[in-house]
Nucleic acid binder design. Sequence first.
DNA 1: ATGAAAGCGCTAACAG
DNA 2: CTGTTAGCGCTTTCAT
Lengths: 348, 348
Amino acid sequence: MVTMKDVGREAGVSAMTVSNVLRGNDNVAPETAKRVREAADRLHYRLNTTSLSARSLRVSTSRRGRTFGTIGLAIFELDRPYPSQLASLISQAAEKRGYQTVVQETRINAENERSIIERVSNQFCDGLIFSSSRLSAAEIEQLSNHRPTVLLDDDRPQHDIDTILTPSEIGAQQAIEYLWASGKRHIGIVGGLGEGSDEHETADSYDTRHRRLMGCRKAFEELGVDWWEVPIIPTLWNDVEAREAVNRYADVVRSCDALFCMTDTTAFGVIRGLKDLGLSVPEDIAVMGFDGIEMSATMVPSLTTVAVDIPMVAQKAVDMLIERIDDESDRERQRIVADFHIERRESA
Amino acid sequence: MVTMKDVGREAGVSAMTVSNVLRGNDNVAPETAKRVREAADRLHYRLNTTSLSARSLRVSTSRRGRTFGTIGLAIFELDRPYPSQLASLISQAAEKRGYQTVVQETRINAENERSIIERVSNQFCDGLIFSSSRLSAAEIEQLSNHRPTVLLDDDRPQHDIDTILTPSEIGAQQAIEYLWASGKRHIGIVGGLGEGSDEHETADSYDTRHRRLMGCRKAFEELGVDWWEVPIIPTLWNDVEAREAVNRYADVVRSCDALFCMTDTTAFGVIRGLKDLGLSVPEDIAVMGFDGIEMSATMVPSLTTVAVDIPMVAQKAVDMLIERIDDESDRERQRIVADFHIERRESA
DNA sequence: ATGAAAGCGCTAACAG
DNA sequence: CTGTTAGCGCTTTCAT
């Protein structure tokens, strides 16, 4: 490995001067600086970022005017459209601001999340973005050595951390209202059960599913429908499980004229499941999703959905995080709810 | 931050002894070791991995018998099903072997890839997996300080690195043969143009698209069809562009009785585009994809496709990489082609 | 069995 | 303008 010392020797200066030149400090004679830069190029010198953090416990450094930082993103799943789109958008938003993003998959497992913080984010990142974390704010603070952090879609009581929420409650409510307004009177809900089958899930009454269900409930109650009469089909939020659920609950499904699905992916599985039952969408039954992933426009039929402004979630997450990284002062914690709209398409 | 020194003070020993205990070295009295461990727990001590690499230039350490390594995965896009599924599977395969995976998006941009290696992978990872890299093997070797590396789907001449390929040529060939065998005589190809619109793409005649096209060509030539007569519709490999392309090349499309699409996502866009034109699949026209992503089974109609064994790609990539990490010896470079099969479904 | 010293690559603080 | 010193958290080496 080529070190600054090596470059210094080549250029006939000390390592310190090399450091100054390469960092763009202006207290070096232009002539010397030139020699150093040439030597560095000749030797293919590469900064060893590792050693930076040893000295400063901060990873970010500015070099030649550009900031040079790293953001850690812990996301629950990488193999589904919504989280992977989000990860991609965050990556790109961060890049525009001069930050590199490293993504890690938690699979909604607290132990994984701890490992991620301890082994990676905590060591190499200037800040963290956590999506659907299973850890408490306090634990995140502690494990991360109080690094700047932004939480995505985590609505538990201890909000001592900047948070961005998807409009789960109001979005679900408007979805039901939309279906009702289009004349549907037998609306079912698909996706009542959790992603993980563990008891954590059900104990945590502040999670996304709960909020979406509460939105539905509110809509129904305002419409004068008894919430306990509303058919709810339990399934994990993915296409394969949703399809099976529709087949398993065929009778329930047949009694409905509309189905609101907790995510777009779930809706895809539902549409497929309905096809298996010989039911067509939207003629026999209307289907609505939640998220507004890109593919929802491409599907046949295209999916009517609660389209969350995903680019906004990504942009705000990055902006808030970088603001915290740059500005150490203890600004008050923010809490943002993402925009959304009902995207009316073919399926409902 | 709690350091070994702190733990040592708490336990009444030196930092050195703490290091020995925590690494599982057996030259410490059981009694002392116990005291140290308790002190570490009490203080919530966390190993600062950063400082390891300064000393050893290797990140992986075994602690209490468990390896404790990190794999860097550079992948071209995170917002499409194929790469994101791959990333997820690699993450999970690595985890089973005790490695954490950090994923970074390159967006098929050489500068990004350099930045990724220099700023992250190179510093904190025991090994790298590169998917669809734009860098030469030589450059990867140099930038990464000769770290263990596995290339995914990169079939350029300089294969001085372990590589896993998708069966692009043979897969495409069998797809055309399948369509032909089912009686189609006017087969078109969708996705003839590159992901990036830059000249790099066209100059690089060893890339995936080229190989898939060559597979088609071989099939057609063996079937006695003039390759230059085969309609090829140019589009980027995603649903939105593919849909537009179908509309733009409506005349060409209408002259076909089957369309082979370069990826499943492209096929989704094509099916949608055909719907826009009032054409139904498979009645009016058969559609076939390539990749075998999960959603292809859920789509309506479900997608007949060249199903690549994606879990195998992930597993082999991780296995090969870890083998190289563990075994420094210069074993010969390997080159594996993933399994596949023609998954026959509704669309063709 | 335990620890003191040296050093990994880099930079903040200060000296010349 | 340039260099020296010291130190970041840890491990390797070598005494004790």
